[in-house]
């Protein structure tokens, strides 16, 4: 059913309160999400002495230096041996510790999948797998390091919680929040300096989607760096008289089914945005939900069965179809299918 394009007015919905009434999010700063992890780790390390951090020779890249310096007895340098790191982390939970492992997303998942599957997930161990440099925005290092399959790998594991925060502040909040969650967690973040638009004191709740901007014509569900692209697209669309609702799905598993269904029911069409393969990612989870509960026209902004390559983050997002114009185009395509 076609509806006239909305005005973009922001009336509070009955299922969530928007976190701001501004249609434009001010950029508070530009910071890397990995620094948010480093700050969060230090903070949770100070308040919870059960927290132990492992790193596989990427302490600087993961911004774990401050924790390592302040808590040398609770920082374990694992060297370039990620499989052993995952096993040691599993063992460390036996004794009541809360280990956080830190390395690149590629080495946090694909390289050690069986270790995570057997020693952590199947064994129900309380390990926090913290993964930086995920996706294309790793940039110049190229496809060997630009994992685009990690969300899928991790979400398929029974009992694994999968979190992809959208900016520096939210990554810090998530890093702190996962300590209180009993069970294995995959926390995915990245390398580039990126707009910071989530207020430092904004509540973060695992499994609870964040309504960033209300709209009536289309629902845009995004995670990670692409939340910012979705907000930029929302503004572009508003100029064209299209009212887009933007929801930050920072927790891909467990998915906030109620929030997704409420928004899709209201707008009647959906676009998903993620720095990941289309197969197995956020969009895949939402498509499964909609197919079961509420069949809805849907478009994906995601990498389409391809490896990445070297380039700057912005160049790569453009080339692989993950930039603001791609979100706008996906919205326009899906609106025609309503």
């Amino acid at each position: 059913m076609h509806r006239p394009y909305g005005s973009g007015s922001l009336q509070p919905s009955n299922h969530q309160q928007p976190i701001t009434n501004m249609t434009t999010y001010p950029v508070l700063d530009k910071k890397d999400t990995r620094s948010g992890f480093g700050e969060g780790l230090l903070e949770i390390g100070r308040s919870d002495d059960r927290v132990v951090a492992f790193c596989a020779d990427l302490t600087g890249s993961l911004k774990m230096d401050a924790f390592a310096k302040e808590f040398p007895e609770r920082f374990i340098q694992a060297g370039i041996s990620e499989a052993n790191m995952m096993g040691m982390a599993a063992g460390l939970t036996i004794g009541g510790k809360i280990p956080y492992t830190g390395t690149f997303a590629n080495f946090s998942t694909g390289r050690v999948y069986d270790q995570i599957r057997q020693s952590i997930a199947y064994s129900g161990k309380n390990v926090k797998i913290c993964a930086s440099h995920a996706g294309l925005t790793l940039g110049e290092d190229g496809a060997t390091h630009q994992i685009l399959e990690d969300i899928g790998l991790m979400k398929m594991l029974p009992g694994m919680t999968v979190i992809v925060p959208c900016d520096h502040n939210q990554t810090k909040q998530a890093t702190i929040a996962i300590a209180d969650h009993e069970g294995p967690v995959y926390l995915r973040f990245g390398r580039p300096k990126w707009p910071v638009f989530i207020a430092p004191d904004m509540p973060f709740e695992i499994g609870k989607a964040q309504l960033l901007s209300e709209g009536t014509d289309v629902s845009i569900f995004a995670c990670g760096h692409l939340v910012w692209k979705a907000l930029q697209a929302m503004e572009e669309l508003e100029k064209a008289g299209i009212s887009a609702e933007v929801i930050n799905i920072h927790t891909i598993k467990p998915l906030d089914n109620a929030a997704v269904l409420a928004s899709a029911r209201k707008t009647g069409c959906v676009v998903t945005c993620e720095e990941h393969q289309r197969n197995g990612g956020l969009g895949d989870s939402i498509a499964q939900l909609l197919a079961r509960e509420l069949p809805t026209p849907m478009e994906y902004v995601a990498v389409n069965d391809s490896f990445g390559e070297s380039g700057t983050p912005e160049q790569l997002l453009t080339k692989y179809g993950l930039d603001t114009p791609d979100v706008v185009a996906a919205v326009k395509r899906v609106l025609k299918r309503k």
């Binding site: 052993n84 982390a89 510790k97 020693s119």
Partner: peptide, 27 residues
């Protein structure tokens, strides 16, 4: 039983981690 095993090669890492936890706990 404190860990799943069967896929080989993983138990030594787990044992090392558990031994590290004992040291941290003064056990």
């Amino acid at each position: 039983v404190r860990i799943a095993s069967g896929s080989l090669g993983q138990g030594l890492s787990v044992g090392i981690g558990a031994a590290m936890a004992k040291k941290l706990n003064g056990d």
